[in-house]
Structure formats: C-alpha cells, structure tokens
Nucleic acid binder design. Structure first.
Lengths: 165, 165
DNA sequence: AGCTGATTGATATAATATATCATCTCAAAG
DNA sequence: CTTTGAGATGATATATTATATCAATCAGCT
C-alpha cells in the first residue's frame, strides 16, 4: 500500500489554512494503519477521531462525549475512553497530561521524543521533534543509568496567532 | 540569612544514603523560604512536606491524606490540596502530571526547565537540569513564535537500583 | 480585648477515569 | 448458510483526583 503524503501543515498553521486536508490526512492515515494491522476502524472510533481531527485543538474526554451525543446517541464514558485508548495505541491520538486532553496527531512520528506546544488561549497543539533534545535525553539517561520507557514533553504558553490578536 | 547548603544527594541516591540529611535539608529550606517571604509555615503544611520528604518517592494527594490520618485527625481533601498548592507555590514540591503525584524537590532550581526522571518500579523521582535542553527549548519557541509559560518534562522508566535488583 | 486577614473545617460536588459483566457484531471456519 | 468465537459495545456502578463554597478558627496587630 502506498504511503500517504505527510500532513504538510506546519506547527501552528495559519488560521486560514485548508484544514480539510489536515482532517482527511488524519482520518485516512488511521484507516490505512488499521488495514495494515488487520484491526477494525469501527464507526465509534472513526467518530472520535473525526471529532478530534476537526481542529488542531485538544479536547477533554467529556467534551468529545458531548459532541458525540450531538450526532448519535450519547455514549458512555467508558466507550469514549476505549476509543481514545485504541487511537492512542494506534499512534494517531496523543494525550496531554498537563490538562487531561486529547488531540489528533499530524505527524508520522516513529520517534517517541516529541515536544507538544500547547496554546493556553486557543488550545491548539503543535508538535515538534528536536534532534538536539532527542540526543540529549539518552545521554542524560546513560549518566543516570536510567532505562527510558516514555518521555513526556509539554510546553504551555501562547501561540503567535493569539499573541498578535 | 545564610544560604543553606545545597542538598548534595545525587539523582537516584544509593539505597543506603543518609536520607536524614535530605529530609532536614528539604524541611529547613522550606522554613527558610517562608521566613524570608514572611509567610506562615503552619503545622499542616509542615506535616505534608514532612511526609513527602520521608523519601524521594512521589505520592498521590490521597496517599498523603492517609498518612496524615495516621498521626493526626483525618484532614479533608481540600486541606491536602491547599497545602500542596502552597508548597508548590513556594517551589519545594513538584507535581508529576504523568501520574498525578507530588514529591519534595531536592534542588534549588531557579530555572524552570527541569527533567524529572520517574522510576515506574520504586516511584523515586530524580531531577536534572540539562543546559542543552534549556537552550534548545527557547530556540524552538522562537522558531514557532511561541511564548513559553511552563515546561513539563517527565521521563518514565526504570532506575539503576531497580534494574539491577 | 477587638479587628483583620489568613488559615482551616465542613460539606458538597465536579471532573476524570476504570471495573465488571452482559450483549451484540462481524468475519472466518465448518 | 449456520455456527462460533473473539473483539467490540452497552449498561451500571464506582474509583480517583480535584475544586467550590461558606462557616469557624487562629495569629498577629493595635
């Protein structure tokens, strides 16, 4: 199967960017990953990802639940969390532990040392992958004799759009 | 007022280190900061910090509550959270957002770009302050035109002690 | 002693997340 | 075409983490 083109939106894309492309990239990528792995991209899972992919903002689990309730019958919290767990396992959704929110990934990140930049005003999340930091962490870990399993890097602040507005 | 000596325990101190020194360093530092700032280091606040300073492990708010209940009358959750908020504001306790746990800081960190290394097995938390990373983040922020307000860096894994045990 | 602001207590509830077991669905095997 | 079995969802309950609100108390000042 051909590789989908990388979502070419930059971190913090302009407010007037063609978000339809981002959205379809996110959804098609998930579908492709499911097909490759022979697992089911059920309507409920699609619905959760569709809601998240509607913007670059992160949403709380219960926000997602409310939006699902608008178009179909209200799911249970467990259903939402199950779909989120599935999508995170698939690698297309990330959880921001700083504010218990979830957002749709727009990068094919095979590394797991990423930076998430979260605008406190508009909620938009941008992803970067600094090679400097990706190198620094294993060095520190070696000094500490620490075996790294998971790295969380979240930077909160204000994005350009909100600062200039 | 003279500056207290820096807590000289290394990140992930040996299991047989003299923890009494760490503990008293933590408590005395907090007392000193309160005196300097003319704010009150009340028994409840002391008690919370004493519980956290009993080890280098992080504890959940309700774990702290249970331990308080062992020695005095059971506080309310709000009381625990208030004490924690006070101690975090003072800069002597940090919150690990990855697992909603709190631990006593053992560094006089005036920078706010720190790395927290959390052993999943024993719960011990170590702090580092990488200058490489401290430089990299503002550079990335500049490229993104992002105004940084807060940086969270948490690395989960296994510490040396647990790996060799 | 009386005032004032900070602290704590008491109570309730919000917000986030998971456990458990029953039921349903789908796709593959027979 | 039916059976069957694993995975997915529904239903219900509950666990875990955290905050809001208002009353009571305490410490320091005059």
């Amino acid at each position: 199967m051909a590789h989908l083109p990388r979502c070419d939106s930059p971190p913090f894309p302009a407010v007037d960017h063609d978000h339809g492309r981002c959205r379809s990239w996110i959804l098609q990528r998930a579908e492709q990953l499911c097909q490759q792995q022979g697992i089911r991209f059920t309507p409920q899972r699609q619905q959760v990802l569709a809601i998240l992919s509607a913007s670059h903002r992160s949403l709380g689990a219960y926000d997602i639940l409310e939006r699902m309730a608008e178009s179909t019958r209200r799911p249970t919290p467990a259903a939402v969390y199950r779909a989120l767990a599935f999508l995170m396992e698939l690698g297309v959704v990330h959880r921001m532990s700083g504010n218990n929110a979830y957002f749709a990934c727009t990068r094919t990140n095979h590394q797991h040392i990423m930076q998430f930049w979260i605008c406190r005003r508009c909620g938009v999340v941008a992803e970067t992958e600094s090679s400097t930091i990706a190198q620094a962490i294993p060095l520190l870990a070696e000094t500490l004799e620490f075996q790294t399993a998971w790295v969380t890097m979240e930077i909160e602040g204000e994005c350009r759009t909100c600062r200039t507005a």
